[in-house]
Design a protein around this nucleic acid. Structure first.
Lengths: 147, 147
DNA sequence: CGGGTTTTTTTGAGTCATTCAAAATAACTC
DNA sequence: GAGTTATTTTGAATGACTCAAAAAAACCCG
C-alpha cells in the first residue's frame, strides 16, 4: 500500500466510526500504528516531528476520541501514565517490567474476551478479563545482577 | 480475640516487618482490615473517626510503608485512585464495575502466582499475573435498564 | 528510667497526568 | 459557498500523589 492508500484507509475508519477526518487524528493514528505502547507525551513528541504546532491538549482529545471509537486501545498499568496501542479487539495482554516500566504484548491463549473466567464474581456480570503480567525485561534482568 | 490482643498481634506484625509500632499505623491497619478496597482519602476519613488530627499525608506515608512491607496490598484499577486491602500473599484477583467503580475480590483458581502463564513473553521473566475482570455490579445491572 | 539515635510524623510546597471550559477554527452537509 | 456541528486551540483547574525539611515520637542502651 502506498502512503496515500494507507491514509485513505485510516480516513475511512474514522468516517465509519462517525468521526471527522482531521490532520491531528491521521497523525496520531500513524504514530501509534508505527510504535507500541506510547503515552500521550510520547505521541505528542512523535506527532510533532511531522506536524509541529499541534498542542498536547489536542493529542489528549484525539487519543480520547480514538479510544472511545475503539480505533486505539488504552491501557493503564499501575504506576505509569496511560498508554495507547493500535491492536484493538483481540483482547491480548501485557507484560510490564517492574523495574523500568517497559511493556510488551502477550498474546491471549484463548483469543476472545473474557479469556479467563472467574468462579464467584459477587453478582457482577463480567465482560472482560484484563491480564497484566509483571516481571523483568531482558535488559533489567542483566542490570539486576550488577545492582 | 479481644481488641487488645488484636492490637498486639498487629504490633507484632509491624515489628517483624522491621517497622516501629505507631498509632497511625495501627489505626490504618484496623481500618483497612475492617473494610475492603479503600483509597487513601477513605482510609483517612475512617481513621479520623477514632483519631482526628492525623493528616492525609501521614496516611499516604503509612499506606506506602505498609504496602512495601506486604502488610497491605495496593491495587490500581484503571481510572481510579490506588486502593488498599488487607488480603495479601494469596494472589487473588478483582472485578471492577465499569460503571460505578465498585470493586470485589475474586478468588484465584490456582491460588499462587503467577496463576496464568503466558506463552511468549518477549524475554521477560514473569513473576506475577494480575487479573482484573471488568463488568457490571448488581446495582448497576439494574440501573442499566433504567438508563 | 533518661539520653541518644533513628524512624516516623507533620507541615508545607510542588509535580505530573489529565480534565474542564470557552472561544476560534475547520469538516462535512446541502 | 453558507450553515451547522464537530474539532481544535488556548488557558485554567483538578486530583492524586510525591518531595523535603523540621518536629516529634519510638526504640535501644546502659
Amino acid at each position: 500500500m502506498t502512503t496515500d492508500e494507507i491514509r485513505e484507509a485510516e480516513a475511512e475508519r474514522l468516517r465509519s466510526a462517525g468521526l471527522r477526518v482531521t490532520e491531528p487524528r491521521l497523525a496520531v493514528l500513524a504514530v501509534v500504528t508505527g510504535s507500541e505502547h506510547l503515552d500521550a507525551e510520547a505521541v505528542h513528541a512523535r506527532v510533532g516531528v511531522e506536524h509541529p504546532g499541534i498542542p498536547l491538549q489536542t493529542v489528549y482529545n484525539v487519543l480520547g476520541d480514538l479510544s472511545a471509537a475503539h480505533l486505539l486501545r488504552r491501557i493503564e498499568p499501575a504506576g505509569s501514565a496511560a498508554l495507547y496501542e493500535r491492536r484493538t479487539g483481540d483482547n491480548h495482554h501485557h507484560v510490564v517490567c517492574t523495574r523500568c516500566g517497559a511493556v510488551a504484548d502477550v498474546d491471549c491463549v484463548v483469543g476472545h474476551a473474557p479469556c479467563v473466567s472467574p468462579s464467584d464474581t459477587s453478582g457482577f456480570v463480567v465482560h472482560t478479563a484484563e491480564v497484566t503480567f509483571w516481571g523483568l525485561c531482558t535488559s533489567c534482568q542483566q542490570g539486576e545482577a550488577a545492582a
